[in-house]
Computed example of a mutant assay.
Amino acid sequence: MTAFRVVMAAAILVGVSACAAAEGPQDAASGGRYAAGSFVAEAKLKTPTGADAGTARIRQKDGGLEVTVSAMGISPGPHGVHVHTTGKCEAPDFASAGGHWNPTSHQHGMQNPAGPHAGDLPNLMAGADGKGSLTFMLPGGTFEGLLDEDGSAFVVHAGADDLKTDPSGNSGGRIACGVFSAL
């Protein structure tokens, strides 16, 4: 009977470990929830008409959050791209996404002496085929701020971000938006 109990206890421990691993990547720096290097959030970008416009993914890396954007179906040239504070993307103007993610109350832009917002990224350059990609580190960011109760969104703007003018870099209207959700 004792051998049977040992085997059962081992089976239960293996089962519990497998369940914990299935919950997703984990690490101590994020409260045990997200492993460094693993993508843990994704926003599927859509235009105001609902057409696919690409994806934005975020993963925890040492020192911050890495954002990887892959856009399609947008006009050629530079586009301001930002993480926005509210996880809503209601057409036609995506104003429901709110302002830029800014938990530290800075001004907009990497070239602004009082900036940047935590959600400010460099411009995304789209080619003649309407496709563009960008990978950028948001220093010091954590997922808890992005996947909070009201969520967050990723927005592609119509024009280039001047990287200094508060509150949005004069980057124009919002042409694509996606709500971040945990993977």
Rank of each mutant, 00 (worst) to 15 (best):
C177Q: 07
Q111A: 13
I175R: 03
A153R: 02
D120T: 04
D150V: 14
H106N: 15
T86I: 15
V179C: 06
A158D: 04
S133W: 09
G173Y: 07
G178N: 04
G115H: 04
M125I: 15
G140V: 06
F136C: 10
D93G: 07
A118L: 10
G87W: 00
N123K: 02
M125N: 13
V155D: 04
G178P: 01
G80I: 01
D162V: 06
F136K: 09
G145R: 02
G119R: 00
G172Y: 05
H79E: 06
F180L: 01
A176R: 03
E90I: 11
G98W: 09
P113G: 09
G141Y: 04
V156G: 02
A118V: 04
A91V: 11
L121D: 02
N123R: 01
H108K: 11
G130Y: 05
H157E: 06
V179S: 01
L121T: 01
F136I: 05
S96D: 06
P167C: 09
G169Y: 04
G130P: 04
H82Q: 12
G99V: 10
T86E: 12
S96A: 14
E149H: 13
K131Y: 03
N102G: 07
M125S: 14
V156M: 06
M125H: 10
G173H: 09
L134A: 02
G178F: 00
S96F: 09
S96Y: 08
V83G: 01
T86R: 15
G151F: 00
D150F: 11
H79C: 07
D162W: 03
M125F: 11
V156K: 02
H100P: 12
D93K: 13
H106L: 11
N170E: 14
F136R: 08
F143I: 06
H108F: 14
A158L: 10
I175T: 09
A114Y: 11
G87N: 03
H100D: 14
G109M: 04
G141V: 05
F154T: 04
D162C: 01
G119H: 01
L134E: 04
P103D: 08
A128D: 14
T135H: 10
E144Q: 14
N102I: 07
N112K: 09
G132C: 09
N123I: 03
G127K: 08
G159A: 13
M110I: 14
G130D: 05
A128K: 14
G77C: 05
G99W: 10
D148S: 15
G77S: 03
M137T: 12
S133N: 15
T142E: 14
A176D: 05
E144M: 08
H100G: 15
